[in-house]
Structure formats: C-alpha cells, structure tokens
Design a protein around this nucleic acid. Sequence first.
DNA 1: GTCTCCTTATTACTCCGACATATTACAGAG
DNA 2: CTCTGTAATATGTCGGAGTAATAAGGAGAC
Lengths: 256, 256
Amino acid sequence: MGNIKLRRDEPENKGSAPEATAKPRGPGRRLHGAVAHKLGTAILSGEYAPGDTLSGEVAFAEELEISRSAYREAIQVLTAKGLVESRPKAGTRVLPRNRWNLLDPDVLAWAFAGEPDVEFVRNLFELRAIVEPAAARLAAQRRDKSDIKVMKEALAAMRRHTLATDAGRAADRDFHNAILRATHNDALMALTASIGAAVNWTTQFKQRARALPRNPIPDHVRVFDAIAAGDPEAASDAMGALVALALEDTRSSMAE
Amino acid sequence: MGNIKLRRDEPENKGSAPEATAKPRGPGRRLHGAVAHKLGTAILSGEYAPGDTLSGEVAFAEELEISRSAYREAIQVLTAKGLVESRPKAGTRVLPRNRWNLLDPDVLAWAFAGEPDVEFVRNLFELRAIVEPAAARLAAQRRDKSDIKVMKEALAAMRRHTLATDAGRAADRDFHNAILRATHNDALMALTASIGAAVNWTTQFKQRARALPRNPIPDHVRVFDAIAAGDPEAASDAMGALVALALEDTRSSMAE
DNA sequence: GTCTCCTTATTACTCCGACATATTACAGAG
DNA sequence: CTCTGTAATATGTCGGAGTAATAAGGAGAC
C-alpha cells in the first residue's frame, strides 16, 4: 500500500490558509487524528474487512512511521467509534459492521471520503425521510422567533449562492440544522451532524452530475412557510416532498 | 473530590467473577476505559460544565494515579465522542452540549449512569415515537422468515421471564432490535444501540417504581402480529401505541 | 490612546524504551 | 479424545525527555 507521508514536511503554506472545512490535513489536525482518519477511511472503504486482524502495534506503527503512542491513540479513537476492538495476544480486529457507529459524524465523513456505497446512501435517505418530516412537524409547533430568523437567513444564503458553491451547500445544511434545532429536542439535534453530512455529500453528488435538474428553492420555501405559519401538517408534508424529490435526484445522478 | 482508587489492588476475586453486564469496573475493562467512563459520567452529570477547562495532563493524571499515556488515551476517547477538545496552551475544555454525540452508546450509558435528566428522557421517547413506528412499517414490508423467528423467540422469552428480571429486559431489547434489523437498513440499525439502551434504562426505572402498572405483552403481540402479517399500517399504529404507553408509564414513575 | 505585530511562556503533542498483564495456543496427563 | 496446566506473545501501562503550537502579554507604530 506504499509509504504514506503523514508528517508535515512543508514549512510553507503558513498563516491562515483558507482550507475551509474540507481538509485541514496539514497542520490543524493532530498526528493521531490524521492516522485515525487514514485507518477509518481504509476500514469504511472495505480495505480492511470485518474480522481482519491488523498488524501488531509495533509493526504497524513502524510502517506508518509514527510512534507507538500516536498509533495507540488513533486506535482508541477507532475503538470509541466501534470500528475495531483490541485484546491482548489476539491483536486488533475490525468489528462486524453492525457494531459500527454509523451515525458518528467522523464515521459518516469517512464513509463518504471514497466512492460511497449506493445502498448506504439509499438507507441514509430513508432515515431522512423518517426523521425530517417529523422534525418539521415539531418545529412548526415549537419554533420561536430566533429559529425563524436563522432559517430565513439560511434560505436567503441559499438563494444568493447556488448549490454549486460550497457556501450554498453550507446554507442548505444550515437550513436543515435550523429545523432540527427548532424542535428543541437534544436527541433529535444529535442527528444534526449525521443528517447534515448526508445532505451535504449527496447534494455534492447531485452536483457532480452536471445537470442539476431542479431548482431546490421552492421546496425549501414551502417548508419554511409552513413552519413559520405554525402549521404542523403542512410542514410535515412539505418536508416529505422535499426529501422524496432529493432522493429521486440523487438516485438518478448515481444510477448513470 | 476525594481520591478515587482506579487501580486494582485486590488480588482476590480472581477467575470468572459473575459481575454480569453492569459494572466490570475492576478488571475486564482497561484502565483508560475506566478513566474515560469516570470522566464521561462526570461530564454528563454536569460535574464539569461546558466551557470548563480540565486540569493539565500532568496534574490530572497524577491526581488519578495513572500514567499520562493512559490519561491521554482516555481523553482521546472523549474527544472522539465530541465531549471535549484539547489544544496546546489552552488545555482541554468541555465542549458545548450540542457538540456531544448523544446517540453514541457509551455517551448514552454515561448519561444514565447517575440520576437521569427527566427532560432528556422525554426527548429520547420523542425520538422513539418517530423512529420506531416507521421502522415497524418498513419491517412489515421487508421482514423475512429469520426475522420473524427471532422476534417470536424474543416474545416468548419476554413471557417467560417478566420485565422484572434482567433476562426479561434483555428479551424486550432483543425484540425491538429485531424489528430494526428487519428493516435491513444499516442507518436505522445504528440507532438500535441508542434506542435499545434507552429502552433498557427506562424500563429499569419503571421497575424501580414498584407498581408496574400494565402487562406489556399484549402491546408487543399486536406489533408482532402486524409485522408477521405484512401489514405496514397496522404495524406502525401498533408500535405508536406501544411507545405512547411506555412513555406514559415511565413518566408517571418518574413524576412521583 | 488604539491597534498591530512580535516575543515568550505554557501546554499539549510526540517520541522512546522498558516492564506488567492478559489471553491464546500448545503440550502433556488422564 | 477431553481436560488441565503451562508458556509464549501482543496489548496494556509506565516514566521521562524533547518538540511544536498557541494564547497571552509586551513592544512598537500610527
């Protein structure tokens, strides 16, 4: 698998490099974090299959050209997310997929780092189709003025920048996050990261297919209006329609 | 806050001590895992509030009477779950609550380690009320013979042992997990651990209130019959009723 | 007087080498 | 062939030393 340079060897690109949120791979991410990212993506991409046993600590750490401490800390991160399990004498094994914390934001990011599994994207949309309409219903009942304000701003930002830009996708994510936050339910808000990631990556894929078939603004406006008006049923319906259309767009762009 | 003994100092109690699943605090859990558990519960219980800065590595590790390596690995676990963030010179700070991965099984367990927040339990039930009926609907459409077999066995186990026993609660959890698995949706199954844990802990609370008010079996049977019959609407309705009743029971047992 | 830039001190981060511990696997006895 | 005890091996834990990054404070310019 070739030698990979994880150490930072380029003293240049100092200061506040505008790397946005995407890949602060150089500095900004600690060494063990980078290793965890590397191993995490390797596991999620199937390079290491469930049941596989990783090389020993000393050997693997040496192969990665890092100390055993940093390697162990990276493994602890993966263990915390349910990807691997280490036991004395037995080594570190990749756990079966149903033990993975697929809702963990990092795990989700790792899953979408490479070519994403089409089936998994479908499952994620199914989760959206369940959670988001219900969340919109609750949001219509409980939203306060500040919630509406945030949603309105996000909507405006979506209009300004299109979904083709990073800023536009961020606004789209902010809009959906604002709805979840308007439910004032911590457990639902915890899904923010998961669903937000799903929204982000999938819209990016839709974008990849050059023809973005529809203007997404009207759907979002309908949802916003219903929530602002305090109409739970309309909000739920509008959000259901939005997710269904998004699924259709994404599916068609992945099918080809 | 007093000195806490985390090291194992008792050479006795060797062999396969039947500590069940509750508290393998002695051996069985690694040292850094025990520290992560201790700090995690301390954060979830509010002993450390968001924004607080923990003592420095050297000081805290010395206070806990463990090496810095073990302490750091514990911190990496907490970082992976979004509870804390460490930066040079600034120290390790507790992140705001909306950054926490509340769906993480460990975090959920830590949240219920002490006296649970009533509001949080309510939110968790609201999530159940959203996800589980939808899951039952999908399960009714997609279940195969093995799914039905597992559910039937879990139901039988629930009848044999009551919800008063550990085995009974485990059977209850298995039943709900079997439904989620019958959806054949990985993302939904990832919620299995979270919701399953919630069900487990809350039923334990219902148990605490000595008067267990209702026989839960009929509700479960209705759900099972609908899924086995392949009737999505009936399955969704039955599960909705089950969750609503469970919420009511739990609420009444916590209100007193 | 206010702001910007730079210096400095503190803290986490990384590395190294050694020992302790737990568990698997093997070998021997029954 | 089954069971029990032993030994080998990889993870777990430890302590210390040195590096890098950042936040706070101070010097300088406007």
